[in-house]
Design a protein around this nucleic acid. Sequence first.
RNA 1: GUGGACGUGGCGAAAUUGGUAGACGCAGCAGACUUAAAAUCUGCUUUCCUCUAUGGAAGUGCGGGUUCGAGCCCCGCCGUCCGCACCA
Length: 835
Amino acid sequence: MAAKFDHEGAERRWQAIWEKAGSFRADDLSPKPKAYVLEMFPYPSGRIHIGHVRNYTMGDVIARTRRAQGFEVLHPMGWDSFGMPAENAAMERGVHPGDWTRANIASMKAQLQRLGFALDWSRELSTCEPDYYGQEQALFLDMLAAGLVYRKESAVNWDPVDQTVLANEQVIDGRGWRSGALVERRRLSQWFLKITDFADELLDGLQGLADWPEKVRLMQENWIGRSTGLRFRFALADRDDGFDVFTTRPDTLFGASFACVAAEHPLALAMAESDTAMASFIAECRAGGTATADIETQEKRGFDTGLSVVHPLDPTIRLPVFIANFVLMDYGTGAIFGCPAHDQRDLDFARKYALPVPRVVAPEGDVSAIQDDAYVGPGRLVNSRFLDGMTVDEAKAAVIARAASEGWGEAVTQYRLRDWGVSRQRYWGTPIPIIHCENCGAVPVPKAALPVVLPEDVSFDVPGNPLDLHPSWKHVDCPACGKAARRETDTLDTFTNSSWYFIRFASAPEDAPFDRSVADGWLPVDQYIGGVEHAILHLLYARFWTRALARIGRIGVSEPFAGLFTQGMVTHETYKSAAGAWLEPGAVERRDGAMFERAGGGAVTIGRAEKMSKSKKNTIDPDAILGTYGADAVRWFMLSDSPPERDLAWSESGIDGAWRFVQRVWRLASEAGSDASGVDATLLKTLHKAIAGVTEDIDRLQFNKAVARLYELVNAIERAAASGSRTEAITVLMLLVAPMCPHLAEEGWAAIGMTGMACDADWPVADPALLVDDQVTIAIQVNGKLRDSFETGKGRDRAELEAEVLARDKVVRALEGRTPRKVIIVPDRLVNLVG
RNA sequence: GUGGACGUGGCGAAAUUGGUAGACGCAGCAGACUUAAAAUCUGCUUUCCUCUAUGGAAGUGCGGGUUCGAGCCCCGCCGUCCGCACCA
């Protein structure tokens, strides 16, 4: 037997065998219970990142365990292959986005395959291929027909140099991240998906997602931002018009001392046309930074319009109207009433402009004047006429009822969530299947004419959207009237691609997006795993698409992901030379507990473990690591030490330790072939406790604990003398490590002389009889302090046990002659003598 | 500002959810094997006190509380990290 585990040979051998046997193909028609395990598919940036390795290893452990437990497992992989980086590569290096993307996919696929994941590669998909995005166009048209898609003019971030719309994330300090040009706000006609139609559903649906992290549910809840309140109309004094305001605190209406509209409010814009001072104030508000620090420090400022509004509950009260920099045009109605006593922003504003601060809510007995802090707590209404004495909730209801009956306002529900603008002035995305005709308007491309395929011959030499600049692609005849018309040249946001790929994995017919009955058989995804950075965008969009498809009858599930797990990052310590330059891990070495530069031997400062980034040079290359240590050691390390939801610090010594573990297990397996016999009852107990523990740990996604238990089992086996039980334990060990170290498990399984493959063997089941101890250790406390402990049989009689404990030397000494006045006995666990 | 999570040895972490704190791994120390090193194996490894023991004391960010008993529950602080950010 080979002394060392030959990881290269084992990987090559077993990966080929699994592939040939189709071991991980999912069968739609299987009678077994189904399990759908999915990790967020990668963007093909070029190389696999170590974070991918951790993510996919966790998914693989679950997939392999479920499969061994008798489930028909769907565990697919694909590529989120549309997006900006491909176009950037085209602009920078002259390579076609498609060629660049497909080459990246090829190399990343090879990297993933080296790791031996139990993936059904027959279902591989790539969103940039027409067979995928063409079906997405069909779904878009279905949603359009169902009234879930509309077109409207809206403000966008426009980069005047690159001639394109930028996402908010691509605007840094007000400048385009590529061009460095000052970004303009421009109004453009954009396609929108009506996600707000589903705001309530998406919010209420979170309640049912028990297997999602609390944190993610909370983030989505806040993002949707449902609030209920009163929307009412302020009539402008001495004029015929007015404006609407929204408030969540209608109870405080008698505390109003002013009203404000946003700088972009139509009333403000109209007045500014004949008032240059006002116009310049509005311009200043617009220029104000939206950066986080700015907002915190920005002073509340206003511009008195000279107008006033009539208080809806008492026409004799008039309130001055300001244009204010802190009122947002795109929330509510873009206008508010100011109640300084009970809103901090309003209070700051009132103090600056010397406006009155009437208190209208007070906690029991406290009617002191408001000083620097607005009172936002509970209490009863004061100084509010017919509302006096009511609680806040009663007063809210009373004002809403009055507004409704008098016709000047109504109860409304307001959301932070906006409709999803999906138009992008980009080449590398799904073409929006619409044709603009002067006669017929926006006409859907007939389904028979799908897919609308991206033209290959595009140029990136000129800034702007290559589709718009293409000489012929956009010129088509109108499908309705036949006249010359223009193709929509915007493409869909890449987040649409990832909003339904999990359905396409489950079912991918050639002539439809998916087959409903097949998709319903697999969905929802039982366990979805990915980074928390997608807590809002992707995970909300995917929930929306699934609900939209359910509403139009395309699918029978409304939530795509029954279970969600967000894993932590892989971090690495950073190294800095004496001169302050970042150093790569390969450029430093450890000597006598300190770090030095390999070249030159200069002293190196070690920084704390943080997210791997190219700029800090603390990245590690999975390929190099795989070559040195092998897939199983890398996988094992990815699961060790840190709880999966927390960050894992990559370290040389850590991966060394994982490698040692692989060798130890291999040594056990390769030497297990002896014909030892006989029963080792102690080892069997340890084995069955390990089976039960590992199974439970994997079930709860506590991989680090499963790893620790397997170390304990290996330690116990190594210490045990040869016996039949020991051989049995080693055999079962192969099955228990198989989800984490699949090549090692197969190699060991074969070395022991077992037939078939470890991956096809049933998951071991613990014998309950071997999980119970007949001997227990009883801790003995005197006044709550541990003084002694002893081994005894399980289920001892209390009085007898007490007598035995009291007779023990240490107990006698600790009691110093006193008689305990109370004896607390926790069966099989502890005796506490209180004296 | 606001919402949330977390705080345990030199480090990553466990602790059956109120019952022997520190499992397991890393690092470290000592020893075995070796001409030597690597690899491997065997011990030790929370801190402090008298290394004599089947010894004692302290100990889970800090200060209180509940309890026979608190890492875990309650109250008040401090710190770190993450999300959101003038949402009316």
